[in-house]
Design a protein around this nucleic acid. Structure first.
Lengths: 336, 336
DNA sequence: TTGAAAGCGCTACCAC
DNA sequence: GTGGTAGCGCTTTCAA
């Protein structure tokens, strides 16, 4: 342990007060007189007093900590880093610690002692998720988790992937694309995201009288898989836009297309359904900024609420995302 | 708090034993007989007993937690995600919790109660780093932090950036590059990394009799900055290879170069000094795999050691990285 | 407005 | 081998 181990008793002794008074003064419960309160607080500062978490937790039977679980199969995606720090910032706003859940649980699964858990994009049969469910703490999931027991999720914050997929397609259409293809993430690869976006594409095609041109590849495809997917959707010579799952794949697709002699932004338009503005560099992509930082923050907000005020059912909430349009029209060609 | 709150007392009562015996049986301190030990452990399982962290911490004056600080200016780099999970896994191996330090500290800086801290690629005048220094817990830094008080770092685990920069240049040379240029990260942008790699390039040029062709750009450059940098290094028509700081910039550079009509992997070779194999997709890049996950794990390993056994000075350790060579020779052109 | 005492669940130290 | 007791630092309840 670190702290210089000055306790309320030390403070009390130094001030000639009881530890009760000191404790009350410190947290401003309005019990002590203003003058002693000030005296105590000043002394606390001078003596670098830090309230002992473990003692407080033991007494109040709370942990002042939240846990975050990001499943291993998505950890290589840039989206989750700002999400995690959004969660960390949100947590610190309410004075929670944020514990990152590792894959390999320690012998006693240390993270079992938290006030609440945030799970993002997991699958229900993930063993970690299973043990999280067994814990009796409130769970907020960012995104819907297929197969997750209804009564074990106190809150769920979602992105309207289906609607937004259509919105991106609309945007591409407004920029001249009449026959967008979709290189979609393999269904079931992660959460329900892949299904929602595929659904979004299919409905949009139906609504707009556009023939479906879709192929699925893993969320993180090999070059060969990506190349094959591109060849597949381009075998329809009418294809004038390609929508990708997340922006990293779109970036890689952009490179391959250029290499194949296509002029991205001119002969072909590109889009991506999962991105964040900070990670977007290509000027030739029309993407959805999922605002991961704000998403993480909002998840904590919701979790804090359900911890304070346990709901009878599941609280549903939406996270707004925004379209970041292809900027190549503004920029000169070659500037990307 | 979550747990069904079954305590050793409950167990003791149920078994007709004292809580002392139960506690000893649970942690196998060799005091109790094998038979009762088994009895107790089985009962614990059945009653879903979970040892109360707060109580244990209070009693033993330890926190069983580590903190990780990743400064905000690098959070958008893919390298740090696997690093963080390497830390998380390493921590769980020793039954530490891993607390992610947020930028905005809560009122009482909750993360002040940890057994040790890992800091990566921070700068010494970062306010969070400052308060971490004021804490009296062991600190391990991943990478050297300029200006960090010598006596406050118990361990430092480093990558030999300078040497490895030269190694990558050697690799490029062996593949035919005779005049490599370097689009380097702006000095002082983060830690000492930028200086080390620039140093590495300059020494290599001197040792190999190659004229220096270097330009610096921000670690995360805009397209305009990147484009200008490319134009600059290519203004020397002899340039037949370009080395980038980290692989994301190299990927973007690769795209721009293709767009400019260069044939990456043929007329020009590309390299990057900070990457990880999981994030490497381009077959045309010769990169350094920094093995971020293992790096994080090794940092915990070191931190655990210094916590167990406080050293008098600072323990130095090296983290081995490896070169992942351009694979385009093996693959058919166009397959990337 | 303040103080005394109890006790959260655990481990340490002593007895037996 | 096992049990009793004290006490970690804090909050809570009751008393003054």
């Amino acid at each position: 342990m670190a702290q210089g181990s000055v306790t309320i008793i030390d403070l009390a002794a130094g001030l000639g007060l009881s530890k009760t008074t000191v404790a009350d003064a410190l947290k401003g419960s309005g019990r002590v007189s203003e003058s002693t309160r000030r005296r105590v607080q000043q002394a606390a500062q001078e003596m670098r007093y830090v309230s002992n978490r473990a003692a407080r937790q033991l007494r109040t039977n709370s942990t002042e900590a939240l846990a975050l679980y990001i499943p291993p199969h998505v950890r290589n995606m840039s989206f989750y880093m700002p999400f995690a720090f959004g969660v960390a910032d949100g947590a610190s706003r309410y004075n929670y610690d944020l514990t990152l859940i590792a894959q390999r649980a320690g012998s006693t699964a240390s993270w079992s002692q938290v006030d609440g858990v945030i799970i993002i994009d997991a699958v229900a049969d993930d063993p970690v998720v299973k043990s999280l469910i067994d814990l009796n703490v409130p769970i907020v999931t960012a995104g819907h988790i297929a197969g997750f027991p209804e009564d074990r999720v106190a809150g769920i914050i979602e992105i309207e992937h289906k609607r937004m997929c259509a919105a991106v397609l609309d945007e591409l259409k407004s920029r001249g694309a009449s026959r967008p293809a979709f290189i979609a993430p393999t269904p079931g690869a992660a959460d329900s995201w892949s299904e929602q976006v595929r659904d979004g594409y299919l409905s949009w095609c139906a609504a707009n009288g556009v023939p479906v041109n879709m192929v699925t590849i893993p969320v993180i495809p090999t070059n060969e898989e990506l190349e094959a997917a591109l060849a597949s959707v381009l075998s329809d010579v009418e294809t004038d836009a390609i929508l990708f799952g997340w922006h990293d794949v779109a970036n890689r697709g952009e490179l391959q297309l250029e290499r194949m002699g296509h002029r991205v932004g001119k002969s072909i338009l590109l889009g991506a359904l999962a991105s964040s503005e900070e990670n977007l560099h290509s000027a030739y992509l029309t993407v959805l900024d999922l605002r991961p930082r704000e998403f993480g923050d909002a998840a904590v907000e919701l979790l804090h609420e359900v911890i304070q005020n346990p709901p009878s059912g599941t609280i549903h909430r939406l996270h707004e995302v925004k379209i970041v349009a292809d900027r190549s029209v503004k920029n000169q060609p070659g500037s990307a």
